[in-house]
């Protein structure tokens, strides 16, 4: 695994960063507020400037179970870029959040109009958001901290 910028805007070439930010508006979420729910239309997306957002899945009998948290600089939401444009997970602000908010339809239209911008955006979303989170997910699947490995540290029990 190579080091990858998690900060979405840092990973986007400067010219396209400015282009994307031209679509941005400021948005705040209070701690505990829902940002979106699973299977809703993904009509907006965000880049977090401060605070923390928890991605969750509804589990019957348990309610929303947090699967990952996102922090400053991270892209909140990639389902807006791919059909059927619906959220796979839900999201809630676990603390007060300040973010750049984007209208997904406007950004998709800009991507259609300018393939170079579209390629840069798609690469960035694939690398920084999807790829990184997939690798993290695979590591967690290994359940590394489980009790099967080692005792106190240095070797056999």
């Amino acid at each position: 695994m190579t080091a990858t910028a998690r900060r979405f805007l840092d990973a986007l070439p400067a010219v396209y960063r400015e282009r994307l930010l031209s679509f941005a508006r400021d948005r705040s979420f209070t701690a505990g507020s829902r940002v979106f729910d699973e299977d809703e239309e993904a009509g907006l997306f965000w880049i977090l400037r401060s605070g923390r957002v928890a991605l969750d899945a509804q589990v019957p009998g348990r309610g929303p179970v947090v699967v990952e948290t996102l922090g400053p600089g991270e892209l909140l939401g990639w389902s807006w870029l791919f059909e059927p444009f619906r959220w796979h997970l839900g999201a809630a602000a676990s603390e007060a959040v300040e973010a750049h908010e984007f209208d997904a339809a406007r950004v998709r239209a800009a991507i259609e109009d300018d393939p170079a911008f579209g390629l840069a955006m798609t690469r960035c979303v694939a690398s920084v958001a999807i790829g990184r989170r997939l690798r993290a997910c695979r590591i967690r699947l290994l359940d590394l901290y489980g009790p099967a490995n080692g005792a106190g540290r240095r070797g056999p029990p």
Partner: peptide, 19 residues
């Protein structure tokens, strides 16, 4: 990796904290 009810800190791999 696996939060419990009431957990208010981060969820995810430790490398996520590097930023």
């Amino acid at each position: 990796d696996r939060p419990e009810p009431g957990w208010a800190d981060d969820v995810g791999v430790v490398t996520n904290l590097l930023d």
